[in-house]
Simulated assay, not measured.
Amino acid sequence: MQVSPQTNQFVDVRTCGINPNHWYVVARSTEVRDKPIGVTLWHQAIVLYRDKTGKVHALEDRCPHRQVKLSHGKVIGNELECSYHGWRFNWEGNCVAVPYLASNQKLPNCQICRYPVRELDGFIWLFPGDLDKLDRDSIQPMGVPEWEHLNYIATVSSIECKGHYSFLIENLMDMYHGHLHNDYQAWTSASLKDLNTDEKQVKAHYEAQSYYKIDKIWSISQLFFPAFRRLHPEPLDVSYVYPHWVSTLGKDFKIYCLFCPVNQNYTRAYLIHFTSLNSFWRLHKLPVRFRRYLKNSLFGSAQKLLDGLVRQDVEMIEQEQQAYLNDPGRRTYELNPAIASVQKLICQQAAMGNYQ
Rank of each mutant, 00 (worst) to 15 (best):
S4Q: 01
S4F: 04
Q6V: 14
N8A: 01
D12P: 12
N19F: 11
H22R: 05
W23P: 06
R28V: 02
R33M: 12
K35N: 07
G38E: 06
G38M: 00
L41E: 11
L48V: 08
D51K: 10
K52Y: 12
H57I: 02
A58I: 02
D61K: 00
Q67Y: 11
H72L: 06
L80T: 02
L80N: 13
E81A: 11
S83K: 13
H85S: 09
F89I: 07
E92C: 14
C95W: 14
C95R: 01
Y100K: 13
C113N: 06
P116W: 05
P116N: 05
R118L: 15
R118Y: 01
W125I: 04
L131D: 10
D132R: 05
R136E: 13
D137Y: 14
D137M: 10
P145Y: 03
E146M: 06
E146G: 04
H149S: 14
E160S: 07
Y165R: 15
L168R: 08
L168H: 11
E170M: 08
L172H: 07
Y176G: 14
G178R: 12
L180Y: 11
Q185A: 14
D194P: 00
D198S: 10
A204M: 11
Y206T: 04
K213C: 05
L223P: 00
S239Y: 10
S239Q: 10
Y242I: 09
H244G: 05
W245D: 01
S247V: 03
F253R: 01
K254S: 00
C257V: 15
L258T: 00
C260T: 06
P261Q: 12
V262S: 05
Q264N: 08
N265M: 00
A269T: 07
Y270A: 01
L271Q: 15
I272T: 09
H273R: 09
H284L: 04
P287I: 06
V288K: 08
N296C: 09
G300C: 10
Q303H: 15
K304G: 06
K304H: 14
Q312N: 05
E315H: 11
I317P: 03
E318W: 09
E320D: 09
Q321D: 14
Q322V: 13
Y324A: 04
G329V: 00
G329Y: 13
R330V: 10
T332D: 07
Y333N: 01
I339M: 05
I339H: 02
V342N: 11
A350K: 07
G353W: 14
Q356C: 07
